[in-house]
Design a protein around this nucleic acid. Structure first.
Lengths: 253, 253
DNA sequence: TCGCCGGACTGATCCTGATCAAGAAGCCGC
DNA sequence: GCGGCTTCTTGATCAGGATCAGTCCGGCGA
């Protein structure tokens, strides 16, 4: 059976979760953890940040964290699970904008329009830290490091937005997608070479602006070339170098 | 000569310029003008902003405002002229990331990496206001409205970055491009229906991820359908509604 | 004035990836 | 276990836009 082979070749790694915070420490992987640690703020300042944080969830697969048009009051850091952001155009077609892993932040693109410009949907059971944005802005005026950190978060996302622009081949796109996911998992302390694709082939295809059939074909070919091991949604990057070379046209740096 | 033929059908509008600031007022079209005015700051606060502004230029067509890898110290608001941002991949191919009109701001995507992640090249003779970013951040901690404005600028650019994502036809892309340029000119007080394309067909094509031949063909067809009038780089949107309908899949809102 | 050069336009052909179609495999209920 | 559903995979065909090639036009310097 399949479960046999799966266990034999690709045992599921523990589900990534970033949920080890307490009253005076951030979750290990949190996008905001660096803000204070780097500058050496002590307990009181951490308290200030913590009091504007609210743990929300769990959300179940398919639940909306927010919807297009919802008034913007807060940004969310993913504690556990994965999220996709997407928007639905007039013809009802979905457009996947991005995937967010534990430790990453969603909602930054809502600051300007003051309402969420997209949907955020949990791809697996998920939990979040909810940061009130008015409170956080106010705090930022008192704590330059927090302001700096917000600027950097925003600017960083500007960089990644241009990732899927460019006319690149399906191979390049898929390779870059896998490398990007891997490096983001690695940046948060998870395995960067073996992880689960929490999104469907259709979502990947939609995000990469390909047909899902094309994604299937490319993944299958990558497997036959021993670039990856693949079983269902479990993937292992066997030849990360080759993948990186393939995708380098799209990847940051 | 040039001015004769061109003047007959599509007289050049005055070159867009945003250069009417003085010691106590911002240039009319400046992206930062709203920051203070909206909150009713008076002269002293304006002074604070002005002292961190430096007028730079003129740059000539083709000059670099900054280059990939330059250390990030400041952001730039366009006072006059047009700029393209682009990056060059390992194979030496250029990738146009965006065009910036008078009143718009470049360099925000450099905050996170702390160096410019792209080139900025003047498409015509151009002038800028240079805002020291450290000084501006410091000011932002004292003036919440400035901080708010920076957050909004960053967040706004996040929204536009997703414009050219999506798999859209060449017609949709070109229509959306023309509408977008028009509305941005209009937002700064210039004509939104008649303007000069300061960039080459090749740059447009590169930005839209098309071949320049395709852009030529689409523009020619739009003209034959009386959607636009076109002479060289002068363009007039004759049927803005139809163009908007064509491009609505890509356009914000 | 001429000739050169780069940008713009147009035509012919090719190729990548979308689309259509069908089958296989996993997931859920019962 | 068995249907019924969705997701994934694989195959065959099709089309949009890239590429290649050639022409035209305006600008510029000798």
């Amino acid at each position: 059976m399949r479960s046999d082979t799966r266990a034999g070749r690709l045992p599921d790694p523990p589900s990534p979760i970033a949920d080890d915070g307490d009253a005076i420490r951030f979750c290990r992987t949190c996008a905001f953890a660096g803000a204070c640690l780097a500058v050496g703020y002590g307990k009181p300042e951490l308290e200030a940040l913590h009091c504007l944080v609210e743990h929300v969830g769990p959300y179940r697969t398919g639940d909306h964290v927010f919807r297009t048009g919802d008034p913007f009051r807060a940004i969310f850091a993913v504690r556990a699970g994965t999220v996709k952001t997407s928007l639905v155009d007039r013809e009802g077609r979905e457009q996947v904008l991005g995937f967010y892993l534990p430790g990453e932040v969603i909602g930054l693109n809502a600051i300007y329009p003051e309402q969420f410009p997209c949907d955020a949907i949990a791809l697996e059971n998920a939990q979040f830290c909810r940061f009130s944005f008015p409170a956080m802005s106010a705090l930022a005026t008192r704590m330059p490091a927090v302001q700096q950190h917000l600027f950097r978060l925003l600017s960083k996302e500007l960089g990644t937005a241009s990732l899927l622009a460019g006319d690149h081949s399906a191979d390049e796109r898929v390779a870059a997608f896998l490398c990007d996911l891997g490096s983001r998992y690695a940046a948060r302390g998870f395995s960067g070479t073996r992880f689960a694709l929490s999104m469907s082939r259709g979502d990947i295809a939609n995000y990469l602006r390909l047909a899902s059939e094309t994604v299937s074909r490319v993944l299958t070919r990558f497997r036959s070339q021993d670039l990856i091991a693949l079983e269902g949604r479990q993937v292992e990057l066997l030849d990360a170098d080759a993948l990186h070379r393939l995708g380098e046209g799209l990847l940051p740096g």
